[in-house]
C-alpha cells in the first residue's frame, strides 16, 4: 500500500517536472525574437521534458517490456533531435539572405568565407 503511494508520488513528481520543462520550452520558443534562438528553448523539451515524461511512465508500471520500449524511445529521440536541429539551422543558413542582420556585424563579409581572405 505504502509502496503504491510512493510510486504514485514519484510518478507525479516526474510528470510535473516534465510539464514545467515543456512550459518553459513553449514560452521560450514564443518569446525569443529569432529562430536560431528559439531552437535553444526547443531543446529543453526534446531532452529533459521527454525524459521526465518517460521516467514517470516507467515508474508508474514497473520494469517490463513497455518500459524497455520507452527507454528505446528516449534513446532514439536523444540521437535524432540534435540532427533535426542541425538540419534546421542549415536550412536557415542557406535560405536566409538577411541572416547577418541578427548578428553583431550586421552584414555579411565575403572575405570571411574564402580561405585566402579575398573579398572581390
Amino acid at each position: 500500500m505504502i509502496v503504491e503511494w510512493i510510486r504514485f508520488f514519484l510518478t507525479a513528481l516526474f510528470l510535473l517536472t516534465a510539464l514545467v520543462c515543456f512550459t518553459m520550452a513553449v514560452i521560450g520558443a514564443n518569446r525569443f525574437g529569432y529562430v536560431l534562438n528559439r531552437m535553444h528553448a526547443a531543446g529543453i523539451g526534446d531532452s529533459l521534458g521527454l525524459l521526465c515524461v518517460l521516467l514517470a511512465a516507467v515508474i508508474s508500471d514497473g520494469l517490463n517490456m513497455d518500459s524497455l520500449k520507452l527507454l528505446l524511445l528516449i534513446f532514439f529521440m536523444w540521437f535524432t533531435s540534435p540532427v533535426s536541429s542541425h538540419f534546421l539551422s542549415q536550412i536557415e543558413y542557406y535560405t536566409n539572405p538577411h541572416l547577418y542582420r541578427n548578428t553583431d556585424r550586421k552584414f555579411e563579409d565575403p572575405s570571411s568565407h574564402r580561405p585566402d581572405g579575398s573579398a572581390d
Binding site: F22, A25, V26, D46, A57, D61, M77, L88
Partner: peptide, 25 residues
C-alpha cells in the same frame, strides 16, 4: 520564416509523443 514553422512542428511532435505515452498509461 519556414524554420520557425518547422521548429514548432517538431516541438508539437515531441509533445504529442508525451501525450501518447501518458494515454497508454
Amino acid at each position: 520564416r519556414i524554420t520557425d514553422r518547422l521548429l514548432s512542428i517538431n516541438m508539437i511532435g515531441t509533445m504529442v509523443i508525451s501525450c501518447i505515452v501518458i494515454l497508454s498509461r
